[in-house]
Write a protein that binds this DNA or RNA. Sequence first.
RNA 1: GGUCCCGUAGCUCAGUCGGAUAGAGCACCAGAUUCCUAAUCUGGGGGCCGGUGGUUCGAAUCCACCCGGGAUCACCA
Length: 577
Amino acid sequence: MNLFAEIEADVRAALATLQEQGKLAEGLDTSRLTVEPPRDASHGDMATNAAMVLAKAAGQNKRDLATLLVAELLTSERIEAAEIAGPGFVNLRLDKTLWHGLVPHILATGLNYGDGAGGAKVNVEYVSANPTGPMHVGHARGAVVGDVLARLLEKTGSDVLREYYINDAGSQVDVLAQSALLRMREAQGEAIGDIPEGLYPGDYLVPVGEKLATMELPDAPDAQLQTAKSVALPMMMDMIRDDLAVLGVKHDYFLSEQSLHDDGSVDKSLDELSSKGLIYQGVLEPPKGKEPPPDWEPSPQTLFKSSDFGDDSDRALKKPDGSWTYFAPDIACHFNKVERGYTQMIDVWGADHIGYIKRMQSAVTAITGGKAQLEVKICNLVKLMRGGEPVKMSKRSGSFITLREVVEEVGRDPVRFMMLTRKNDAPLDFDFDVVKEQSRDNPVFYVQYAYARIFSVLRNATEQGVVADDAALAKAPLHTLTHEAELNLIRMLGTYPRMLAAAAQAREPHRVAFYLMELAAAFHALWNLGKEEVNLRFIQEDDAAGTLARLALIRATALTLASGFDVIGVTPQDELR
RNA sequence: GGUCCCGUAGCUCAGUCGGAUAGAGCACCAGAUUCCUAAUCUGGGGGCCGGUGGUUCGAAUCCACCCGGGAUCACCA
């Protein structure tokens, strides 16, 4: 139930009636019509811009049209008052029973409050980190943003597949295999000294080496490398899956790059583009904006005409020596998704891949003839802070901070929540000190506390002999909720479905976290009102009916919080210690 | 040089599809504990929404140009 959608329907119906009566021109474009909460609550419950949006095309005066609309809207039982304000807004005040009706609706739907339906199939690809080591903290943001985006889309009705593209074919995997073979010699008792430059130094390869040491290896170096790969890759992916599980992130589908080479998908993609005349042999310009590398020399290679689709230049599919570039299997990967029925694809990438967006979108548009589209969400850098200082990390030395370390130190839920406290494309400071604090400064705690506080009230009520189970709350006499602060909280609950729909459409999971903070603030404010005005406390000893109504309200608040927590993958706590 | 992102209060940031007097937290100042967890709340000061034009009934939001910050730019991952 989305009250805003319902009232918008009423407004549209009123406009239609005006048209039937010949008071309003037909065939108007109503796409810009909105019904939204006014910035200032004193303006009413909702406001519509209908008159302003339609007046010009209808050839009517804004205020005249607004007057007609007001008269028509007032015939509805649901609308208590309607008046013209400002430049031509129509401010609406809803019958209070409409707001009150929201509470039992939320009590009945629970975690499903705000669910949408009928969305499309969407493929969300995220993380897709190289299978060469554990997840580090930089991966955490993309993991959370992708996971919450997937949850948000599911919540609003889409059929979502969470995909992980395994880059198991590039030279980084050869390096992995070489590193593992070195660890194998170590496991066999050889003194290997420092790990040479260019190999992966991390301890996490020790178990891989130990496993290799127990095996019979072929003699040929190439064959040894293949064996090392086949052992190391699954172990790396298991480690990555475990790391992601620690964060509560799971994928439905893992697509191997190597498999795209093996089954001819890469060739097939190239053929597809070739048949559209978008492949040619050519020479690329030297890299701009910096000194060309000393070994730069122009040489012909296989190129894709991505500049036909808005990219800055054409892009290489094959290196001059004829081997594939990274771009080619990436195209195959997305073509593969399309062939599996996904015409809506969303990729979540790190900020270092910004320059890659256009060519990938160009390729998707080209290979599908525009039938499928790829959206790319960029996750900017995370800066770890401790004691007011940035935490140093060096991937080269292998001493980077792992995702697991961070989660083990501060907990899964705080990590998830903090990753959503900024727009995904803005840099984010992750401050260990703040995340572990129990105060207003810590948004995770603040929101959790609101939830726990509600349960504390409900426990207290029960102790005082109030029967506040679901059946009792469902029958609460909500008309006793008349105070502005109480109605404000209900209105806030009412915007939840609207917020979800907007966040999903904009692909902006952070809005859910911000909403939860606002809702928590509205609740804390009401709670504290009870200090100054004793008759606003939730539990009133001499007013059983009023108490029940307020408990119903805060129970609905808790359920809405829980629903939002569910979307961002955080577990609500009944009690904080 | 190209491309993308960013520029909003002293600091960190929200700002919904273009809506009314631009918001929150921190910091600062002044308050609220016999009472559902003061782990919280209330009030106050603080703004050229980077700049200039444009579109519009209306612009922090859209467009153009400029200024400042960041990322990225053969191949490589």
